[in-house]
């Protein structure tokens, strides 16, 4: 049980919180911590475990979010269907990035992923007839489980917790399984991995596709929870950076790292928003300055991330 210690603390606290806490603001923060942690974990599948660092994952988040909004408003379909449709579309789109990952390395790959998400941003913000363009599009609130409309934040906490646990377990599986070791080999040295018979090209595509589908699922949940989809937010480079950020600060390539990172940065963000939001909207940027500096320091000083640094939690026994 020790190797799950940190995760037990985080998820246990999240599960118990709604029993004691009734404050909507705190519950909202908790939901966001879980959701952002889950998104970073999804990014971590490709960026951390397979070493395919993408700064274009907002593309898949946006596809998931727009699926919820468009299927809901245009065809009155359930978000659960949107979730599946979004995941399928994202998987298809991720094949482009997966293909690129087999042609490009290092900064070239990163640039390509950015360009990819920017194309989707432009399409979503300019295709007025279909997406309502840059105005964004509201996601209808329809009460009920089938329509994912919960007035009660507690339900959302448990839903977010469920998805977070799923991602945690997927990552744990990636650490101890055959495919996990093979991915680690690809990340460390692709040629050497191939020489040992690892089908690296296919594995990378699979990892990126899985990561994309999971990111899309979170995008659908997020859109349904927040209730509005703005193309300049859901497809933004900032968002892609954010997914990577929590994973790197918490501990890249570790199962608990993304959640640990999310607890830290989402809490800081919420705190600063609550503190300074009323005084001057500009001051909200402070948390992003802190993130930027934190990122610079962490990759240089403790590349294994805070989770690895604090408790040696990052290594499997």
């Amino acid at each position: 049980m020790r190797r799950h210690g940190a995760a037990l603390v985080i998820f246990g606290a999240a599960a118990l919180a709604p029993l004691v806490v009734r404050n909507a603001f705190l519950l909202d923060s908790l939901i966001l911590i879980l959701l952002w942690g889950t998104l970073s974990a999804a990014w971590n599948v490709a960026g951390g475990y397979a070493g395919q660092v993408s700064l274009g994952h907002a593309a898949f988040f946006g596809i998931g979010a727009y699926s919820a909004a468009l299927l809901g408003t245009r065809w009155d379909l359930s978000p659960w269907i949107a979730l599946v449709v979004g995941a399928l579309l994202s998987t298809a789109a991720s094949l482009v990035i997966g293909y690129l990952s087999n042609r490009l390395r290092g900064p070239y790959f990163v640039l390509a992923t950015i360009a990819f998400s920017q194309v989707l941003l432009i399409v979503a913000s300019r295709w007025r007839g279909f997406t309502q363009g840059s105005e964004g599009i509201p996601v209808p609130f329809r009460p009920g489980f089938w329509t994912l409309g919960f007035a009660d934040k507690t339900t959302w906490v448990y839903l977010a917790l469920g998805v977070a646990l799923l991602l945690y377990l997927i990552q744990r599986y990636l650490e101890g399984s055959r495919i996990g070791y093979q991915l680690a080999a690809v990340r460390e040295d692709e040629d050497a991995a191939q020489a040992l018979g690892v089908a690296s090209r296919r594995l990378k595509v699979v990892a990126i596709a899985g990561s994309a589908a999971l990111t899309s699922v979170c995008g659908t949940f997020w859109a349904q929870y927040v209730g509005f989809v703005d193309p300049f937010y859901v497809f933004s480079l900032d968002l892609s950076v954010r997914f990577a950020l929590a994973a790197i600060i918490g501990g890249i390539g570790t199962a608990v790292g993304p959640f640990f990172g999310s607890v830290l940065i989402t809490t800081l963000e919420t705190y600063l928003r609550a503190t300074f939001g009323g005084i001057g909207a500009g001051l909200v940027g402070i948390y992003l300055i802190i993130y930027g500096c934190l990122l610079i320091i962490v990759v240089r000083v403790i590349p294994q991330g805070l989770a690895g640094f604090v408790g040696g939690l990052s290594r499997r026994p």
Partner: peptide, 24 residues
């Protein structure tokens, strides 16, 4: 590469938001 990429991304994030905080 990854360390370099994230270092400059971090720098970008910090500078952008210094501008945001100072000049809205």
């Amino acid at each position: 590469h990854n360390v370099q990429i994230f270092t400059t991304v971090g720098l970008s994030l910090a500078l952008q938001n210094v501008a945001l905080v100072l000049w809205t």
